[in-house]
Each structure stands twice: as structure tokens, then as C-alpha cells.
Design a binder for these strands. Structure first.
Length: 232
DNA sequence: GCGACAG
DNA sequence: ATCTTGTCGC
């Protein structure tokens, strides 16, 4: 260990924990990034080219989000929803919740280390139960390659779950120059930007695409109903 | 020194 | 992410 700069505090036995964490996190991101695929890599189609191959159409699009308790900000509710985009009203055919107490803090640029474990658990749980609605592509509330090191939450989750993912950002640096509140779509894993944008457009009834919008709405509703106070 | 900084 | 009411409009 080297000297601790002018922090005004002497630590000899247990050095800069957060600094070291950041270093390990950066290594982990760079490591996972080697497995990142940013071009189309899936078997389904976005539209039927002929009348025969209808089974190959994209049908199940998932969305994930996490909401936090207003009273205890470490208590979070992760939510996974799946919509059937072949139904005429984007029906929600699956949803699941995971209430947890997070210990990892939110650090800009490292959102995945805080949220990915929760979202991965929801995906693994669904796969374990052999649900027929397991998503063919997943929209994530957070950025993909639109990230300081080109590896945001959507990429992180996509690589670990080996699933095509799309990053849906609602805020980005320099949001003062754009016109009307835009959303920021970026490649997560196993698909191209063109494909990502096409899928997002197919699921947009409002500003935010339905998969992540429904996940957001339902996770907040879950926290509201299951009051996360000490009175419950 | 000051401002920025996904959720 | 969350703290926060009403309000104008389709």
C-alpha cells in the first residue's frame, strides 16, 4: 500500500476501502467487457418475411427496474416483467418481485455492482422455474455502452445472463441542451443499435418503453403496498 | 476551487 | 433513486 494523500486521516492497517473497491470494480468491468457483443446475435426475427416462419418472431420482451423505499433507502424492490409484443396491447404475461436490503452503495459509473445481483436473481429464478415466457431480449433501466468505460448496467447484466439487452437511460450528462426530454437508448449486449432502437419503438406507448415503464410502476406499487416500515 | 456525476 | 401538490391538457 502507498501513502494516503492529504486526507487528514491516518489509516495504517485498513487502507482506502472505497478506493480499492473502485479499482477492483474497474478491473471487473474491463474483464466482463471482453465478452461483450455489440452486434445482432439472436435467432428471432423482428418481422415475418414470409408467411411460413411465424414461430421465429420476437415475442417476449422483458423489462427490469429497481425502486427504493423512501424511509429506508437501503431497502429495494427489484422487478422483472415480460410483455408479449405479439398481443395487440403489449400484455404483461409475467412479473416477479424481489425485496432486498442493499449494502453496496451507488457510485456513478458502477451502478451494476449495486443493482445487477438483484436483477440476475430475478432472471435465474424465472429460468429455474422453466417459465415459458422467459424474455428473448431485456430492456434495462440504465445505460449500456453509453458509459464512461463503455460498460454500463445493461451490458453487465447482458453478459452475465447471456441475454440480448438494451440500455434505457432517462438522464445523461449535458441534458440541458436537448429539446424535449429524450430517452437515451444504447446497446447492452448481443444486438446492434439499429435493432435496439427498432425494438424500443415497437414498445413505446409513452416516453419510456413499456417493459421498463411497467417494471418501474410495479416495483413502486409493490413497495407502497408492502409498507417497508417497522410497523409492518 | 467549482461543477458534474446512469439509478 | 427519493424528498413533493396542484394543475393544465388530450
Amino acid at each position: 500500500m502507498e501513502k494516503a494523500p492529504e486526507t487528514g486521516i491516518e489509516e495504517s492497517s485498513s487502507p482506502n476501502t472505497s478506493q480499492d473497491d473502485h479499482k477492483q470494480w474497474i478491473e471487473a468491468q474491463d474483464d466482463l467487457k471482453r465478452r461483450l457483443v455489440t452486434e445482432d446475435d439472436f435467432s428471432w426475427k423482428l418481422s415475418k418475411e414470409n408467411e411460413e416462419e411465424e414461430e421465429a418472431l420476437l415475442r417476449y420482451v422483458g423489462g427490469v427496474d429497481i425502486s427504493f423505499s423512501k424511509e429506508d433507502t437501503s431497502v429495494a424492490c427489484g422487478t422483472l416483467v415480460v410483455l408479449d409484443i405479439q398481443s395487440q396491447d403489449l400484455q404483461v404475461v409475467y412479473h416477479d418481485y424481489y425485496l432486498v436490503t442493499l449494502t453496496v452503495p451507488y457510485v456513478p459509473g458502477f451502478l451494476a455492482f449495486r443493482e445487477a445481483p438483484v436483477l440476475l436473481e430475478l432472471l435465474e429464478r424465472m429460468k429455474k422455474n422453466a417459465s415459458p415466457f422467459y424474455p428473448q431480449v431485456l430492456m434495462v433501466d440504465g445505460n449500456g455502452i453509453l458509459h464512461p468505460r463503455g460498460f454500463g448496467l445493461a451490458c453487465h447484466l447482458g453478459v452475465l445472463a447471456d441475454l440480448p439487452t438494451i440500455g434505457i437511460g432517462k438522464n445523461a450528462m449535458r441534458s440541458t441542451k436537448g429539446s424535449l426530454k429524450p430517452i437515451f437508448i444504447s446497446v447492452g449486449h448481443r444486438l446492434s443499435l439499429v435493432t435496439a432502437i427498432t425494438i424500443v419503438k415497437m414498445t413505446c406507448k409513452y416516453r419510456v418503453p413499456e417493459p421498463t415503464r411497467q417494471a418501474d410502476i410495479r416495483s413502486r406499487e409493490y413497495l407502497r403496498k408492502h409498507q417497508t416500515g417497522m410497523s409492518e
